[in-house]
Simulated scan of single mutants.
Amino acid sequence: MAKHDRLLALMTLLRSKRYAVTASELAQTLSVSERTIYRDIKSLVHSGVPIAGEAGIGYVLERGSHLPPLMFNQQEMIALELGMRMVRSLSDKELAEASTTASAKIMSVLPDKLKKQIENFPMRVPDVHTKRLATKSAKILRHAINDQRKVQLTYTTEANEQTIRTIQPLGLIFWAHSWTLVSWCELRKGYRQFRLDRMDEILVLDERFEVSENKNLEHYIKTRAH
C-alpha cells in the first residue's frame, strides 16, 4: 500500500473510533508494523491533522476536528451499493427508503465512469421486500430495541402452539432465510429467539428495561459461540 493511501486509511480508522486506539491495533488492521504507525502518526500531526495521544496509550482525533470528505475506490463503492440493495430487499420499509435516498446521495457525487461501473456490476439482489410480511414487524421491533421498551408478543411456535410472552428485545439477526428477534424472555428467565414470520401480534409496552454486561446482543452471540 502506497504511503498516501495508508495515511488516508489511518485517518479513516481514527475518525471511525470514539476512543483511543493503540498502535498495535492500528498496525494489525492495516497490516503494517507498529514502527510504521508511529511514523505515519508523526507525518499526519506535522501536516496539521489534530491527533491526540502517545505511544503505549493510543491515538484519537481531537473533538471538533474536521477532515476532508472520504473518497471511495471502485471496489468500496460496489460493496456499498450491494449492501444498499440488500437493505432495500431484506429490511423494513423505513430502512429500505433510507437506503434508497442514501444511495442516491452517494451516486450523485460520483464521476460518470464510476457511476456506470456500479450500475452495471454483475451482482444482483432479488427484490423480495414487498413479499416479506415479517419486515413490517421489523420496524416496530427495531424502535422498541432502540427505546429499550418491553414487548408483549403473541407467537406461534414450530409445534403450531400459540404463546404469549413478555420480552426484552435486544437485537435482530438475519439467518439467510428469515429474520429473528433476540430477546430476554421474562417467562424463561433467559435468552430466546423468535422468528418474525411467526409473530401474530406485537404490543410495545410503556415499561422500559436495562441491558447489562450479561444481557445484551453481543453477550448472546458470544454465548452461542462457545
Rank of each mutant, 00 (worst) to 15 (best):
Q168M: 15
M84F: 14
L61E: 03
Q148K: 14
A27P: 06
S89Q: 08
S43F: 06
V182C: 12
T135A: 06
V32L: 09
S108V: 05
T22S: 14
G171Q: 04
R35M: 07
A176K: 14
F121C: 08
I145Q: 00
L44E: 04
P122Q: 04
E213P: 14
L153V: 07
L67C: 09
L153Y: 05
K139V: 06
L172F: 12
D197I: 03
S99G: 07
I164H: 11
L7E: 02
A96P: 05
I106E: 03
V128E: 09
N216H: 12
H177L: 11
N160K: 15
E210Q: 13
M71K: 12
S137V: 02
L82K: 07
I41A: 00
E210A: 11
R208G: 04
M107Y: 03
K222M: 15
L67V: 05
G48E: 06
I106L: 15
L203P: 01
S178M: 10
A9W: 01
S91C: 12
V128N: 07
L82R: 10
H177C: 10
K150L: 07
L196A: 08
Y59F: 13
E94P: 02
M86E: 11
K42Y: 04
R88I: 06
E158T: 15
Y191F: 15
R18H: 11
R224L: 14
H4R: 13
W175K: 12
S31I: 08
I37R: 00
H226E: 14
T154Q: 14
G48H: 10
T100D: 10
C185V: 05
Y191P: 03
A225T: 10
G56R: 09
Y19I: 07
D147R: 08
W175Q: 13
S99Y: 06
R188V: 05
L70R: 09
Q28A: 12
A144C: 09
P169V: 01
A104Q: 13
K42L: 07
L153N: 02
M84L: 10
A159V: 09
S99N: 06
E161N: 15
M11A: 05
E158H: 15
S89L: 03
T101F: 12
V204I: 10
T29F: 00
E25R: 07
S89F: 02
H219D: 12
I145P: 00
I164L: 11
E54Q: 14
M11K: 08
A9I: 02
L7D: 02
E25A: 10
F194I: 05
Q193K: 12
A79R: 09
L90M: 10
Q162F: 02
K115A: 15
I106C: 07
V151D: 00
A104I: 06
Y38Q: 09
L14F: 01
D40W: 01
I202H: 05
E213M: 13
